[in-house]
Amino acid sequence: MRSVGVEEELLLVDARRGEPLALSGAVLAAADWSVGQRTEGGGPQGHTFEKELQQEQLEFATRPVTEMGELLEEITRWRMEAARHAASAGALVAALGTSPLPVRPSLSTGKRYEWVGEQFGLTAQEQLTCGCHVHVSVESDEEGVAVLDRIRPWLPVLTAMSANSPFWQGEDSGYGSYRSRVWNRLPSAGPTDVFGSADRYHEQVRAMLDTGVLCDEGMMYFDARLSAAYPTVEVRVADVCLEASTPVLLAALVRGLVETAARGWRDGQPPARVGTGLLRLAAWRAGRSGLDGPLIDPQTMRETSPERAVEALYAHVREALADHGDDDRVREGIARLREHGNGARVQRGLLRTEGTLGAVATRCAEITAGSA
């Protein structure tokens, strides 16, 4: 069975006002200190937290697992640990794709981040967005690229399902996932053409690096890519999700997409020849609508309802879901999204009931930590 891992980026916010705080260094120091204390007492060693582009962010990654129940336990555990370490630094952690409140982000220190800030200017300075990346194991680069070529039309549906960034600089953006629009300002971000082979994939990566626009392979910000560090396909289109169960739903669907695509490749089925221009429109539509407006059908590339788009995705991967034992979990997760909505809908509902964007941020922090 293919293993799955998830990376989540979290926002650090003030416990009373909900505004972002540039405290990642202090939170990481608290995590390091906690590890030292546990190690002296014979407890488990290490933590998974890392800094991100902005000092208002904190990132963690789960272990690769094969059971979705284990993945949920991992995500829940690290969210709670992040909340504990943030509290020691006087902050909360919130699984928000963007800050509801106005913010002037603070670039993290280090040569790579300095290079990004100098190269991309205001685009980098404004880039305070939190995503969720799903890794699924593949047997080879050749299989991985075959997967990348075949999952392209389905990725916007994942953006819509995960949409959790309706607010930007204190205003309602009108989008479900405004994070996806801000992220796509970066020159290497977005959908890709069909590569056709691992050799052509790596040739494209080398050609892009040779331009000097990007500093390393980690800046290949494709919607889905071969991981530079692990034998995985990495799908990068999702907002960080408010509820811990939602990234597990996404991970099950992504693994289903990877397995379905790999089987199709082995059976000699060609990838759909959908143009990258159409995929950009589908991605924009998903970011704009979330689950509250029309989407683009991944098979026909025509407008459809979000319910039908999600159902088409489920039907496409259902056989793989059943083989992995994920079918019931995915059906329940989709039903929960239909009933309660994604993070964007929840945030807008909280604004109506709580009255301020600061309260939205702090209530979302409670949900993130599992205390709401």
Results as ranks from 00 to 15, higher is better:
R338F: 00
R16G: 08
R77W: 04
I296F: 00
W154T: 00
E67G: 14
L21W: 11
S305N: 01
G268Y: 08
T362K: 09
A312L: 01
L72T: 05
H324N: 12
L96Y: 10
R255M: 10
G277F: 06
A244F: 03
C130M: 09
Y230C: 01
A359R: 15
E126G: 11
Q37S: 10
L12A: 04
P298T: 01
E40C: 05
P156M: 07
P20T: 09
L279H: 03
R200G: 06
L72C: 14
G349P: 11
L321T: 06
A124D: 11
A224T: 07
W33Y: 13
L281S: 03
E8G: 05
S177R: 09
H135D: 10
D328T: 02
V182Q: 13
L242H: 06
G176K: 05
T211H: 14
G131Y: 12
V233Y: 01
R329Q: 14
M219F: 13
Y230D: 06
A361T: 02
R152P: 04
V237W: 01
D297H: 02
G268R: 01
D239V: 04
S88N: 08
E339T: 09
G170S: 02
H340T: 07
Y314A: 01
M220Y: 15
M161Q: 03
A87I: 09
V182L: 11
R336H: 10
T356H: 07
H47F: 11
S140A: 06
A252L: 03
A229G: 05
T356K: 13
P102E: 10
S289I: 02
R352L: 15
D239A: 08
S227E: 05
L279T: 07
F120I: 04
P64V: 06
Q127R: 14
F195N: 01
F120Y: 15
R181Y: 07
Q125K: 14
L71R: 14
R150L: 11
A94T: 05
L92R: 13
S99D: 02
C241W: 02
P153D: 12
A91F: 06
D172T: 04
R77P: 10
E259W: 04
L351Y: 09
G349H: 12
P105D: 14
D32Q: 07
E126N: 08
Y175R: 00
V233T: 09
A30Q: 14
S137L: 15
P102T: 00
D328I: 11
Y201C: 08
V145I: 04
T211I: 10
R308I: 00
S165R: 04
P64R: 10
G121W: 02
M301A: 00
V233D: 13
L58C: 08
E307P: 04
R363W: 12
E354R: 12
L11F: 13
L10H: 03
F222Q: 14
G43T: 15
A369N: 15
N342C: 08
S108Q: 12
D267V: 09
A207H: 05
E234T: 00
C130T: 03
L226C: 06
T48P: 11
W265I: 01
S165L: 07
E143C: 13
G355C: 11
